[in-house]
Each structure stands twice: as C-alpha cells, then as structure tokens.
Nucleic acid binder design. Sequence first.
DNA 1: GAGGGTTATTTTTGGTCTCGGAAATACTTC
DNA 2: GAAGTATTTCCGAGACCAAAAATAACCCTC
Lengths: 409, 409
Amino acid sequence: MRTAADIRRMNSFAVVRAIHANGGASRRELVDITGLSFATVAAICTKLLELGVIAEVARKRAPAGRPTATLSLNPEHGFLLGVDIAETYVHVEAFDAALEPISSTQYDIDTHERSPDQVVERVKSAIAAERARHQGRALLGVGVSAPGQVDQVGGTSVFAPNWDWHDVPLRDMLADSVDAPLFLDNPLKSLAIAEMWAHPERRGQDFVVLNLGTGVGAGIAIGGRVVRGRMNSAGEWGHMVIVADGRACRCGSRGCVEAYVGAPGILQTLREAYPDSPLLHGDDQTATIAALAAAADDGDPAALDVIERTSHYLGIATASIVNLLNPDIVLLGSWVAELLGKHLLDRARTHLQAHALAVPMAAVAFELQHPRGNSVSLGSATFALEGYLDSVPDGTTDPETTPRRRTVG
Amino acid sequence: MRTAADIRRMNSFAVVRAIHANGGASRRELVDITGLSFATVAAICTKLLELGVIAEVARKRAPAGRPTATLSLNPEHGFLLGVDIAETYVHVEAFDAALEPISSTQYDIDTHERSPDQVVERVKSAIAAERARHQGRALLGVGVSAPGQVDQVGGTSVFAPNWDWHDVPLRDMLADSVDAPLFLDNPLKSLAIAEMWAHPERRGQDFVVLNLGTGVGAGIAIGGRVVRGRMNSAGEWGHMVIVADGRACRCGSRGCVEAYVGAPGILQTLREAYPDSPLLHGDDQTATIAALAAAADDGDPAALDVIERTSHYLGIATASIVNLLNPDIVLLGSWVAELLGKHLLDRARTHLQAHALAVPMAAVAFELQHPRGNSVSLGSATFALEGYLDSVPDGTTDPETTPRRRTVG
DNA sequence: GAGGGTTATTTTTGGTCTCGGAAATACTTC
DNA sequence: GAAGTATTTCCGAGACCAAAAATAACCCTC
C-alpha cells in the first residue's frame, strides 16, 4: 500500500469481490458498487478478462441502447479444493473459480488414527479422489484447515491438542500430492473469511463467528480483516475464563468457556444434573446432542434445563466478546449450533443482555449463522482463491486478508 | 485509499510519524525507516517544510561529506491541548506541535459536582487557563477524553455511568470556548494512540493497554489501528465476566473484572478478608491503595494476601485477552498500576501463565506501562494532532486511526 | 590562505503507472 | 437513420522510483 501498483491491486481485488458478491455485475454496476470511475473499472475488467479470471456470461438487452454485458467470475477458469481436517473427519470439497461447490469427499477418522502420517494419508486420498473427478481442469490452489494452533506462514500445525501434535509440517507433507499452491490455516480464520466473501457487507462491519463444536472458538474480523494475532492464534474464545476456579478444561486451565459450552461440556452438564438421563449416549457427542435437541423439541424438562444452563454460560461468554469488541454481529455456527441453535439462541440472548453493557448490546445482532454446506472448506478454498489472485501477474489482492503466499510443489 | 492522493497522504503521515518517533531524523534516515525512495521522501519533506509542520533544526557535520540536515516536528508551529476528564479531576495539558508537554492545569472535581454543566465549566476554565499561558501561539486543536461511552464522530458523551450522564453533547458545549477543532474520544482510545506514537514499533504489533483505575478497561490496537467497534465502545474489558454469578458490579452485571480488579474491588477484597485492617481509609481509594502498596513494601502479610488475590483475578482476566487476541504485548497502566504494579505484575503473570494457552502465552510480553506524564491527555492531544494534519491542505493522514474530522467553532 | 579532492546528502530529471473526467465509439431497438 | 445506453479511448494531473546532477561541507596540498 505504498505505490500506485498497490492501489491497482486493491481496486482490482475490490472488483473481483463485487462481482462475486453480486453473482455477476455489469461494468456500470461495478462503478456504483466500488465507487471507482468508469475508466478504471473498464481497465480492470479488460485485464481480468484477458487473464480469464472473469468472463462475459450474458448480455442483457434493454428496450433501447447497447445491451449490458454481465461479467462474472469465470467458473471455467479452473477449480479450487477446500480441505477441512476436523477431529472426526476429513472433508475435501471442490469449488469452481466462482467459489460454487462442485463436489466433495469425506472420510471419517477413527479415534485411534491420530498420528500425523495416518491423518495425512486420509487427506491425501480424499484430495486424490476429488482431483480425479476433475481431470483436465486446472487446479488453482488448495486451502487446508487444521484444528489447533496453525502457523499459516510456515505451513505447520504448531499444536493440535486433540491429537497431541507438535510442529507437524502439514504443508510440506501434503505438497507432493498436489501440484498447486497450498495454503494452511485454522478453521476459525476460514469461517471468518468465508463469511466476508459470502456477505459483502461484512467487510465494513466488525463481526465474530462463534464456532460451537467439540471445541469452541471465535473467528474474528475487524475492519474487514481477519484478526490473527502474533502467532495466528487469535480467536481462542473457548479458553476465556468465565468461572474462576471452575470446571477443569482439557487445556489444563479451569473455568474455560469450552468446558461449559463445548459439546463435552454440555454432556457433562447433562450427566451431572441427570446422571441416569436416557438422553446420554455414552461419550457419543453427536448422538447425545441430537437426542437433547429432539427432547427439547418435545418440551422435555431435563433437556430444556440443560439447554438453559448452557445458554447461561454461552450468554455470559458472548457478553465478554460484546463488551470487549463491540461488534456489529455475533454469529453462532458449527454442528452444535445447527442442532441446538434454535433452542440456545433466545435463551442465550437473555443472559447476554443481562451481562453486556447497554451501548454495545444495543448495537449487536446475535444470530445463527446460515452456512451453505461446509463453511470451513469454503473458507479454506477462499484462502486458496485469494492466494491465486495474489499470484496472478498483475493480479489482484487484498494485502491484509491474504496470507503471505508460499507456493509449494 | 483508492487514488494516488491517498498514497501520498499515507506516506506523508508515515514520514511525520517517523520524524516524531525518532525525535528528529535526516532525509536519509527517513528513507531507511519508511522504505520510501529518496525522491519521495525529499518531495514530502519539502512540502512539510513549506507548511511549517516540520523544521530543519540542526546540521550534523561529519568528518567528510555534506552535513546532514536533521528534520524535526516544528514546535514553533503551534500548540495542542489534551484534556483528560476523569472521575475526580480535570487535567488540561498543553503540548507543542512535536507532542512535547509544555504546561498543564488540573482542577479537582468534587463528588457532588457531577452535572454536565458543572463539569464543563471546570473544563472550560482549565482550558482558558492553559490558553492564556500561550497567548499569541496558534492553537492547532484540542483533544478531549471523557469517561464512559463516547461517540467520537458526533462528539457526545453517550453514557457516563459514574455521573449518570446520557447523550451529553460535550463537543458542542465546549465549542464556544475554543477557536480550534475539537476532538472528543474515550480514554482507552487515547491510551492506545499515545502508545503508538510513543513507541513506533507498536504500529506493527497487536497490543493492549490495560487501564487499572477506579474503572478498568483496555485500549486495544490491532494491525496499527485502534479498535473502536461499532459504537466506539470497544475495550470494555472491565465488564468481561470472570466469575459467573460473582460479585455485583456497578454496571448491573455480576462477576465483572472491574468488580475484582478495579480500585473499589480491591478495597472490597481487603474489607472482606480483613474488616478491621488499618490499611482501610474508608472509601478513599487512593489512600487505601497507597497504604496497601506501602504495607506490601514492608512485607505485611495481609497486604500481600490482598495483592495475591487481586493478581489472581487480574491474571485470569488477562489470560482471556491473551487467548482471544494473541497480542504481542499487554501493558498495565493508570494509577493503580503505578502504585501496585510492581507487586501485581509477577504474581499476575503466574496466574496468566496458568490460564493462557501455551502458544499465545509464549508470544506475549506482559509489562508495566511507563508513561511520561498523563498518557490520556497526551493521547487526546495526539488525536488533535492527527486531526490537524488531516486538515492541512495536501496534508498527511492515517485514514485508519484518525477519527473522522469535524471542525467546530 | 586559496584551491582542488573527497564524500555523503539532497535535489532534479525522466520514465512509468494510476486515477478521473470527458469525448468518442459500439451496439441494439424503433 | 435516430435514439439511447454501455463501453472504450484519450488526455491531464499526480505519485512513485531509479539514476544522474548538484550541493555543502571537510581535508590536504601548494
């Protein structure tokens, strides 16, 4: 952001985003959306058309005058892979260059298959399966999300608590299985970036996506940029303390949000209050949470009690974020939110209201996220798309949100 | 940040900052610091010299070669006022255009003098006193910090809990007493901006200044920008919950950080554990905290116990920030930190370590802030300086940190 | 003491790039 | 062919950078 070329890159990037957000736009519309001059928009579009990043997909004829050429991201330009490495599965999804999902492959990971080599093997075969489906099309990039602390510049998993991984060089391990740039990041950052691409108004907002799963965390974006922190570890909302000297957390601390709001924490709340509850499916989190949701639908008092207790903690933990960051919007996402969200939302909002200051409370929207498919793989693919755009000669980039590029393979 | 002029403004701003941070610099040094080309630096400096914003203050002669012209912010160019409206006093400080303090006036505010008119009267007379001291010099701008929720764009105090103010139009009320642009903001933001100007390396870091006084809060800066949130209310760290259903807080919630770590909270801890302690000076916070510090110096076990308990809560509350934001540095400031800091710091760090995740913990520096004088008035004056630079024709600005300009009077 | 040599700092010049505004051009319907 | 809208093209202004030219000392010799 120092020389004229940087301006062109930023404006070029803004045009690409506007086209994507609009699902296709004419040059005139782009002028209105981006605020750039007609001349500039025309020049940028010409360049992007030459590169094949965008294409003229339709001409809208009007009663009079030259018909409008609708520009859109060029789905023929190639495809992207978004990889979501989670604690229990590997999900690999293919997207066209307009970020529309095309196909996906998912493999479960057994609890005992936890070594880096075993997991990487799974990832590789899922990638190979998707790669094979799209023979002949150019692979523009691969984005990979891995749980825990991830060094997105170095491409390593610094620490994954659930598998006890330390400094696993995931990008290098995967490099020989893909002939395209590979971007590694953390699911929280993927969620935030996906939200920004799917909802262009988010660029001008400060927002937080709360990820409610086995682990919990927050994807934070401020001023149109994903918050990463010094070590790309920002967003560990799950390990904020809400009960001093409270429940032991798997992180070694006590009273963490995750110990109450994470799926195992919800199970623990259920087990402590109703040790013999028929809703308990042993340690099977998904089954138990699903049973809880079904029972709550039927008005089961025990289920509603557990949900109320969970909402209490969720509301408090959300209040801390609302007070600290004063965001425009807080979203609840991931599988626990999908199963229990409708029961949690209003109850948690009540507790949020009781603990948040009036001014930030009045300003915040507290809602369920409505994902199209797997947001994490979408976000990972988005990182790959940004990386690709960044790498294009005379290309387009947002120097703030794009991870520093590092081509592999 | 869209056209070439924006680039010039940003680079111009970078040059001003570099000159200030260095306490004067040659053009050659500016090239190294800013990364700009020599030609660009020369052009910018010529312009700034013409405007009188900077001046050539010295020529360093070397054993050979053309002597180096040292450029520095031009203190003769005019002066700034920084106003710190606090709960118990009004502090007005004059700074030259190089942000060096020149003089200051402070008036106490009695507990019963809490109406907007009364407080504004105090502020006006303090400003008048400082104004009178610098007759004949140009007043470039006035920065005002007011406690509570402040709308810095509209220039109003939205809500000040300690005085029960609602929507007080402070800027308009003060406008007729100053013939210069007036900028209103919140002390937390002032602290953050002051820290950035005083320590240039902070621009590239994510940092948090914890303000430990009667109320507590956090000045947050991410990516060189002060975090404001939707309503400029970000930073209310004092009202994050660390003890679910804990102590009642004056905000109406329970278990807030402030209820434990704010000065009244520390007094409460002391009173609950040692009801007859000689350290207690009734409700006089300053006297009691000072007595606590003195007793701790002497190894008094009761004082050390209270400090240990406070450190526990402080460490937990800091851990939440470290986990959520993964900052490079967390600083402790304000009068409680000045009095008790040396006793709190290492103890709190122990608790921080116990509650923070390993990766962000390893990355963070946890230190006492070393302010030169009143950081809040310095920061307020800095907002005024930024506003002034922004207003200069062909001037310099950082569009991100500068509050939108709004000239009054 | 005067004048040329040295050396590091600044200033100028020339080339390339971007943006915006306005005029010119393209494309379609009536 | 006229009318009407959508793009493209054509400047001019301004910003950056690289490199050449100018400047302002000091130092040393004559």
